[in-house]
């Protein structure tokens, strides 16, 4: 039993890493008032770029950095369209996903070596190695927590750090002000568009690391649609965490954990309707959304940024 639980913890953490990176990123973006539905496309693009860099250079830091850059550039497009050009954010985000999905698949068939007729599929490259923390990794039950790749450790640190940044620093206060009430924030002297640009790009870069984790560690290599819809799960996770980075871990554990449990159940041949189990996180997310909306109607704050999805323009005189 202990073995089973600790193996579930191990798989969950590994499966959850990319989700938490992207979820925290999207929380930053949404807190500033911008909804980015382009995460799926960003994660796919950064996964393919990270894998390509790792394949040709063998340098994992360069691979992760270029994935961040990819995420940053794609979200910059979203920021430009939705902030400067005031385009509809849902449509702009979806077109980033449409473009990213297509482009990633295109690159996956052209960036590979001649010998593989340009394909990246089926190649293997340098991947993130497990970093075992001596002593701690031998603990019963929670041992697997200390037997992960570096990005998983980083994401475990990122959770408290981003919570602190968002709720205990002036930058975090400004960020929340912009998403909550841009008019007031503007009157307070905060540059609304600049903050929105900044956190949309930061969000994209974090989603980029999430994408890199997929192709460099979780499922090393490149296959079309390597994300398997994770970019959409992230949108659900943001709601599930009530826009609070410290809660991002629970949603990711739920989604990741359900994957892990299912993996075990299938391996042991247990007959359970896996479909219902898979649906559960989405249904729970809808339930959470309903509950927080009702709460907010009763004037309780839940963390959902009031100005989410609405462009900001100074009143004309």
């Amino acid at each position: 039993m202990i073995l089973l639980i600790s193996s579930i913890i191990a798989i969950t953490l590994k499966a959850g890493t990319s989700l938490v990176f992207a979820t925290i990123g999207e929380i930053f973006t949404e807190k500033s008032g911008i909804l980015n539905l382009g995460i799926e496309g960003i994660m796919l693009m950064s996964a393919v770029i990270a894998f390509t860099v790792s394949y040709y250079t063998g340098n994992l830091s360069a691979a992760i950095l270029s994935a961040m850059l990819t995420g940053g550039v794609l979200s910059l497009i979203h920021a430009f369209l939705s902030i400067t050009m005031q385009a509809q954010q849902v449509v702009s985000g979806l077109s980033i996903t449409l473009f990213g999905t297509g482009m990633a698949s295109f690159l996956g068939q052209t960036l590979g070596p001649e010998t593989n007729s340009g394909y990246l599929t089926g190649l293997s490259a340098a991947r993130l190695q497990t970093l075992t923390i001596p002593g701690l990794s031998r603990l019963p039950l929670i041992g697997p927590v200390f037997n992960q790749d570096p990005l998983t450790y980083i994401v475990l640190l990122l959770i408290p750090v981003s919570w602190f940044f968002m709720y205990k620093t002036k930058h975090g206060l400004n960020l929340r002000a912009v998403g909550e009430n841009p008019q007031t924030a503007d009157a307070m002297g905060i540059n609304v568009p600049r903050i929105r640009y900044l956190y949309t790009i930061v969000g994209g870069m974090l989603a980029g690391i999430g994408g890199a984790h997929l192709s460099l560690s979780y499922t090393p290599g490149w296959t079309d649609n390597i994300t398997g819809g994770r970019g959409w799960i992230v949108i659900a996770l943001v709601i599930f965490s009530l826009w609070n980075p410290s809660r991002a871990i629970w949603g990711a554990l739920l989604f990741g954990g359900i994957n892990a449990v299912q993996f075990r159940l299938q391996a042991s041949g247990a007959d359970i309707s896996s479909t219902l189990l898979n649906m559960l996180p989405y249904l729970v997310t809808i339930a959470v959304l309903v509950i927080i909306t009702v709460w907010e109607d009763r004037k309780r704050t839940t963390g959902s940024p009031a100005a989410l999805g609405t462009p900001y323009q100074r009143e004309e005189k």
């Binding site: 369209l81 473009f99 297509g102 482009m103 698949s105 068939q109």
Partner: peptide
Amino acid sequence: PSAMGKVMQGMILF
């Protein structure tokens, strides 16, 4: 790669 079509769809949109 057939994904060209999707790339073009995206590029029209921006």
